[in-house]
Amino acid sequence: MRELSLNILDIITNSVEAEATRVILVIEEWQTRNLLRVRIRDNGRGMSDDLMSRVLDPFVTTRTTRSVGMGLSLFRQIALSTDGDLVLQSALGVGTTVTVDLRLNHLNRPPLGRISDTVVNLAIGALDVHFYYIHHTESGRMIFDSFRLFGYMEETGCGLYQTIVPMKEKIQRQLKAIHSSAL
């Protein structure tokens, strides 16, 4: 995948399919530590120890439509190629946390890309899920809460689909404000 925001979309889509009602995406970007950390935490059905031990194998999936499950292994490969790693924590009935560390200034690190598209499309495409997106940099922090879409609808009287462009633009503006240099 060309952008990390696509890998993130892929992992959160797994959370939605695991019947999560709450997904928290935290991105930490620390220039001084040369670290880009992506953490996705959900309250979905979680995984057994057995499945968790096999799930990073690209030839393991819980789906029935195909015999490969590339998402996690692909993200892990990207992390490893930047001298980082992917760590999974999961408990049945509790949820799953995926933590991916990448070296921020490594040549192999793909750009974050259009994270606003990932977050807003997810919020619209899976209305039952409450999404939080928190982004930290050394210059500050931004928070997006998918409930804001509904607040915006109430305030402006517009329909759900009319909230998409203003919400994406708002996220982009907030991201710009906490970045001294573009990702």
Binding site: M1, L6, L9, D10, T13, R63, T65, R66, G69, M70, G71, L74, R114, D117, T118, N121, I124, G125, G159, Y161, Q162, I164, V165
Partner: peptide, 29 residues
Amino acid sequence: SVAMGTCGIAAGARTVMSAMLDEISKRNV
């Protein structure tokens, strides 16, 4: 429904979803 498996996302499903949402919004569908 837009298919958002790993294969779909890698092939451009997010761009497709964004274009559909944009068109639906613009045309007030």
